[in-house]
Design a protein around this nucleic acid. Structure first.
Ligand SMILES: [Zn+2]
Ligand SMILES: [Zn+2]
Length: 329
DNA sequence: ACACTCGGACCGTCAATTAT
DNA sequence: TAATTGACGGTCCGAGTGTT
């Protein structure tokens, strides 16, 4: 079933007047599902199941940026509270990726006979997986990602699992280093560049008019507001066709700017802030040699990793379709 | 006391895979 | 084609921190 439509911009008032699906009342008062006022997940539904946290389908941009609870109503209660209702609009959802190859699924439930057989078999072994087959340790051939595809098509902001870079030394070395290799750095730089190109623009330029920047607007999402004419398109992919637009606004003239990365520096450990980093965490002399020794180990390891990465590198350039360059001014 | 920040647990949706 | 799996991309809890 296609989920219910995302409310168009002129949307006024929630459709759930009865409050059936919403967790917040129309007037902005939290609708406590639990008589004692416990948060939803601490309650239980009629079947005695622990109640799940209910999410809105689409938080407004302000709540999204603040990672705070939103509401179906527009303006949402939080924006009303902070008097930023003019920027209270639905955020834009990315289109889900297609064509991703998956590994083999676990066995499905079958007939009762099969199930019994399986159960028996499971008892013979450890039985820790119950009726299901044990998880298959996928081994991905070199040069393929976890989906068996060459390269990693859209890993711009995701935590790409560097399956080829297991480092068993992290814990004993004391300083976890994220070996992002070329890709990661490149992406980070890319993100920064984009940030400079667009995010650095006075943020208000890309916000709805009438929006005055407000202290309660955190920045780490950049501007994800879909502007008129700003078709949603992420930098790496989805060039022309973007069939599934959840929330549509009247298209104006296109200055299609890709939305910036939420956090470009996400996984690089900050040398400055980290309390006990590699440098001189313990001044004792006896440990110093150990540190040296380990760092030489580390150097060797990183050399190996770099070498491995260099082997894979030729792949990635092809995926780097040059993004629509947004020329400032 | 309140607002802000943000890591990460949790949730809903839906494409890929598998069974029929 | 229907059923199911699995994970992507989202929401938002809650702890820590900063500000008034
Ligand atoms: Zn909101
Ligand atoms: Zn809002």
């Amino acid at each position: 079933m296609q989920s219910m439509p995302y409310y168009p911009q002129g949307y006024q008032g929630p459709p759930y007047a009865g409050g059936v699906g919403g967790a917040v009342m129309n007037n902005g008062q939290p609708m406590m599902p639990h008589p004692h006022g416990l948060p939803p997940m601490h309650g239980h539904d009629m079947n005695g199941q622990p109640q799940k946290r209910k999410q809105v389908k689409n938080a407004c941009t302000n709540c999204q940026k603040a990672c705070k609870k939103c509401d179906d109503a527009r303006p949402c209660p939080r924006c009303v509270k902070y008097n930023i209702t003019d920027s209270c609009i639905n955020s834009v959802r990315k289109e889900r990726k297609k064509g991703i190859k998956r590994g083999p699924y676990k066995r499905r439930q079958k007939t009762d006979a099969d199930r019994a057989a399986e159960r028996k078999a499971g008892e013979d072994q450890s039985g820790q997986y119950g009726m299901r087959a044990p998880p298959i340790p996928y081994g991905f051939p070199g040069g393929l990602n976890q989906y068996g595809q060459p390269g990693y098509e859209y890993g711009a902001h995701q935590m790409v699992p560097p399956y080829n870079m297991v480092s068993p030394m992290y814990h004993q070395m004391g300083y976890p280093v994220m070996m992002q290799g070329q890709q990661g750095q490149q992406q980070a730089q890319q993100g920064q560049q984009q940030g400079q190109q667009q995010g650095q623009q006075p943020a208000d330029a890309s916000r709805p008019q009438g929006f005055q920047s407000h202290p309660s607007l955190p920045q780490h999402y950049g501007n994800m507001v879909q502007q008129p004419g700003q078709q949603q398109s992420s930098p790496q992919q989805q060039s022309a066709s973007s069939p599934q637009v959840y929330y549509q606004q009247p298209a104006g003239t296109g200055s299609g700017q890709p939305s910036p990365e939420p956090k470009s520096q996400a996984m690089t450990p900050m040398p400055s802030a980290s309390t006990s980093s590699n440098t001189a965490s313990s001044p004792s002399e006896s440990t110093q040699t150990v540190v040296e020794e380990e760092s030489s180990k580390y150097a060797r390891l990183s050399q190996l990793c770099t070498a491995a990465l260099h082997q894979e590198k030729p792949e990635e350039s092809k995926n780097e379709q040059q993004q629509p360059e947004a020329q400032p001014q």
